[in-house]
């Protein structure tokens, strides 16, 4: 039976696909630019990763540069500062996940409870604005606020009888400052996806819950938050995937000799050791190391999430 049916089924499947393609042809055409974009800008450049294993010289090109095996990786792992860089990267990322990640969720929940539309919109717009500040500007603002030479915060501390704190020039404060900056700049912007997720929750669920006697807090907890759950999980996985990329600009602008020990991360190290010295192969090796860790983290997080019965990325 199965013997005689197999080719028939296969053909039928093909036909069905073709038919589907024909009816939805415009949708598929719409997808094409996106696919081309990813191929050209995301997949094609991956070929460049071979220079991590070569001694790349731009004037010899990708193919003619000599192979050196894993020399660049060995240089990275045997670097005196490797442990420091790794520790700083992990800790700053951890700070971001623990202190930053939940904040947009809370803000989105709070915004959702606001009845007055005009007020809600105004607040939303206002908290989006910091996102459009460049890190250079933000580090300038932080300098003016936190410097020991007449900075606002230290003025305040002295006014209330404390002694001024060297926020910007000490390693103890730098990670908190970085987290604060991220919070100030991106917490509002981060609510967009959550607010979008909230709009998809079926209003009937709220009605049903109300009939069951749920108050506002219960509605928030059992309906809104529950409805956002899959979004939260996916964003968490993505965030974990970016564990090793902290963004160069923010940290570079805050970095100085006095806090480097606690804030120098792979991104800033690559700039000094790689870009400024024209060591492209070494930079690529560092990038590849970072991406590999990121990939492992994403896959790991995804696996765990699925194990707990949530829908993961894939």
């Amino acid at each position: 039976m199965s013997y005689s049916h197999a080719p028939y089924n296969k053909r039928k499947k093909w036909l069905r696909m073709l038919k589907q393609l024909r009816t939805n042809i415009w949708l598929y055409i719409l997808v094409v630019p996106g696919i081309v974009y990813f191929l050209i800008f995301k997949y094609l450049p991956m070929g460049g990763l071979i220079i991590a294993f070569k001694d790349f010289n731009p004037f010899l090109g990708f193919l003619r540069s000599p192979w050196v095996g894993t020399e660049h990786f060995a240089r990275l792992f045997s670097n005196n500062d490797f442990i420091m860089l790794f520790r700083n990267t992990l800790l700053i990322s951890l700070y971001k996940i623990v202190f930053y990640f939940p904040v947009p969720i809370i803000i989105a929940l709070l915004l959702n409870e606001i009845r007055l539309k005009l007020f809600k919109r105004t607040v939303q717009t206002l908290i989006y604005i910091p996102h459009f500040f460049s890190w250079v500007v933000i580090s300038g603002i932080f300098y003016i606020l936190f410097t020991t030479e007449g900075g606002f915060v230290n003025h305040l501390i002295e006014y209330f009888g404390g002694s001024s704190i060297n926020f910007l020039g000490s390693k103890e404060w730098i990670r908190s400052l970085l987290t604060t900056q991220t919070l100030w700049r991106d917490a509002g912007w981060g609510t967009i996806l959550y607010l979008a997720a909230i709009t998809t929750i079926d209003p009937q669920l709220y009605e049903a819950a109300k009939i069951d006697g749920a108050g506002r807090f219960r509605l928030m907890w059992h309906v809104t938050l529950a409805g956002m759950r899959s979004t939260i999980v996916i964003l968490l996985i993505l965030q974990i995937g970016h564990f090793m990329d902290l963004g160069f600009e923010q940290i570079y602008n805050m970095l100085n000799p006095l806090n480097r020990e606690y804030a120098d991360v792979f991104d800033t190290y690559v700039y000094v050791a790689g870009i400024q010295q024209g060591q492209f192969s070494y930079s690529t090796a560092i990038g590849m190391f970072k991406s590999t860790i990121g990939l492992i983290l994403v896959l790991g997080a995804n696996y765990l999430v699925r194990k707990f019965g949530e829908e993961g990325l894939f």
């Binding site: 459009f132 967009i192 996806l193 979008a196 997720a197 709009t199 998809t200 929750i201 079926d202 409805g227 899959s230 979004t231 996916i234 829908e311």
Partner: peptide, 25 residues
């Protein structure tokens, strides 16, 4: 079902975000 819809809204939102960002930069 609702997860699917959730996801698609999410994707649309993400796409808009990307567009806005790329326009800004």
């Amino acid at each position: 079902m609702s997860i699917r819809r959730n996801l698609s809204v999410l994707l649309v939102a993400a796409l808009t975000l990307v567009l806005v960002l790329s326009a800004c930069s």
